[in-house]
Computed example of a mutant assay.
Amino acid sequence: MIGRSEEYEKMFRLEGQLWWYRSLHERVEKALQNRFGQRRDITILDAGCGTGGLLDFLRRQGYTNLRGLDGSTDAVTFCRERNLSVTFVNLNELTSFEPDGQYDAIICNDVFCYFTANELPPLVSALARRLRTNGILVTNNNAFKLFRGEHDVAVGIIRRFVLADFKPVCADNGLHIHLATYWSFVLSPLILLVRQWQRLQLALGWHKPEEAQSDVYLPHPLVNETLYRLVRAEQTLIRRTPFGSSLFMVMSR
């Protein structure tokens, strides 16, 4: 998404409100609580932190040792508007950046989709080496090619994943997957319908790729709150689901 200033601006405005971001942020905090309980002094790195919505959320939950990295000057600028500790780093060069840095929790949400098959293993390796004993790597990723649509074009997503894609690279880096679930299962028919319609419009030339718009927009407050509550209920009632537009994972060394 680097270079798409308008998308970063939308993300900055809507991360605290949009149902999807709210749901993801709560999933991350739940993973932290499951591993570390009520501790708020753990060291947390958000690699590919975007405009800092997750870091801001965690700060409001009382976490005190937060750091972010991102390869977009737009993202870093927005993070600094939030008074967050964020460093400009191209994640392709993470291997050489502060190689001795260690963290209790590393978060890398919706970042792997911008890395090719050759670029991803070194990134995962660099993240794994920075985990402390008992540390966790939390990552959310775009899932299933069926869900590719105008959103992918607008933000430059180059690939989508299934769980099997991660098993070899995790094994190569001594990472054990504790939790892997697709979400949102309950909304997947609706999301799939929208994305297929977007693909048809692009294929027929009704929408031009260079004018593609992301799905980052705020619907009517009632709709937004309903979608949030549906996804929250799914997360509460069903620990793992077999299908959805995103894949959420928690790993440790």
Rank of each mutant, 00 (worst) to 15 (best):
K145G: 14
N134H: 15
N65H: 14
L230M: 15
I2L: 11
T181E: 01
F161I: 06
L200C: 09
L91A: 03
D46W: 08
L227I: 06
R59F: 03
S252N: 15
R27W: 13
T95L: 03
I158G: 09
R60T: 14
Y182T: 09
G244Q: 04
S125I: 00
Y228F: 13
L237K: 12
F78S: 00
F166N: 05
L54W: 07
Q196N: 08
T139M: 15
A212S: 15
L120G: 01
R67D: 00
R130H: 00
N65G: 01
R253W: 08
L218Y: 07
M249G: 03
L237N: 11
V194G: 11
A212I: 08
W206L: 15
G174L: 02
N173H: 13
L58Q: 06
R59Y: 06
Y8H: 15
V194R: 15
Q196A: 11
P99V: 07
R195N: 01
Q213K: 15
F161P: 05
H176V: 14
P209N: 04
N34S: 14
P221W: 06
G244N: 05
L45I: 11
N118T: 12
Q17G: 07
R240I: 07
G50V: 12
L24N: 09
H178W: 07
Q17Y: 13
L123W: 03
A203D: 06
Y21A: 13
D165L: 09
N173T: 03
G71S: 13
N90W: 02
S246G: 10
I238N: 01
N109L: 10
Q235T: 11
K208V: 02
A75W: 01
E6I: 08
D41R: 03
G149T: 02
T236H: 11
L222N: 12
